[in-house]
Write a protein that binds this DNA or RNA. Structure first.
Lengths: 137, 137
DNA sequence: TCTTCATTGCTATAAACAATAGCGTTTGAT
DNA sequence: ATCAAACGCTATTGTTTATAGCAATGAAGA
């Protein structure tokens, strides 16, 4: 059985991404969140007070889809919205959000370490540059 | 604005994958198919007569989800099912399926070339090995 | 100042995809 | 002959993403 797709970077990218994502979500499920929640928490943790659509722009999530995302993390008590001016609002982590973020970082670090470990050592320095290159926007 | 995600291989993988996929689907839309259809056509073209669940196993698609996939490509006249024994069926490309596959290959080649072009030349030999490594199953 | 245009957050909806459970039939091994 | 596994399928659900439109606000130019 010959798999002609196994030598296509685009296809490998997709399969690798979906496998890695599934694995990460299994780990994050232990604290009741998914990878999108995690990315929002990390971004907010690094940039307290950024506004909602900025966050969406950076994360590649549309305004409309940011609403339920922020809402559910606010409802969980992890995130706080604060009116910035009449139309925009800033995002902050709550204190439990800060705590959860520590756990998220632990999980993410473990995940990333597991990922990178699958790459032959001499190629590891190229992983990030290559993925950044492939990520066109 | 600091993006703490930009140095995480797992995150880069996801963003790169989704960007590349969106781009590929834009190109494939011109011939009325998507990337999943394309992968099935390529696989069938390379392995005429493989059966439906084998195909699903290789492509990472579950039996239940193979049904509408094969059905719609059969309805388009690209694919043919042939009873193999009482329970399984073999997949073949029709002659128009073969024709379409040529176009698919052209599009895919163009796409892959565009992808690889974004990687610094000296790193290109590592792209496939790295992605294969990252793709754990 | 007044007017115009872009931005923000939101609702509602649709479309696409993947995952689960279960069914009838068939095959193959014991 | 029996029984477990495999196949294709249906039906359903959940998840995610995309699209369109809206009211309110802010910013910039005439």
């Amino acid at each position: 059985m010959f798999d002609p797709l196994a030598s296509l970077p685009g296809y490998l990218l997709r399969r690798a991404s979906s496998a890695s994502l599934a694995e990460l979500n299994r780990k994050l499920a232990e604290i009741g969140i998914n990878h999108v929640d995690a990315s929002l928490l990390m971004l907010t943790g690094a940039n307290p007070g950024l506004n909602q659509s900025e966050a969406g722009r950076i994360l590649g999530i549309q305004r409309a889809n940011m609403v339920p995302l922020v809402s559910r993390n606010e409802a969980r008590g992890l995130l706080r919205r604060q009116k910035l001016d009449g139309r925009s609002q800033a995002l902050f982590l709550s204190s439990t959000g800060e705590d959860i973020l520590q756990t998220v970082h632990k999980i993410a670090d473990r995940h990333e370490a597991m990922l990178i470990a699958r790459v032959p050592e001499e190629m590891r320095p190229y992983v990030i540059p290559i993925l950044r290159g492939l990520w066109m926007e």
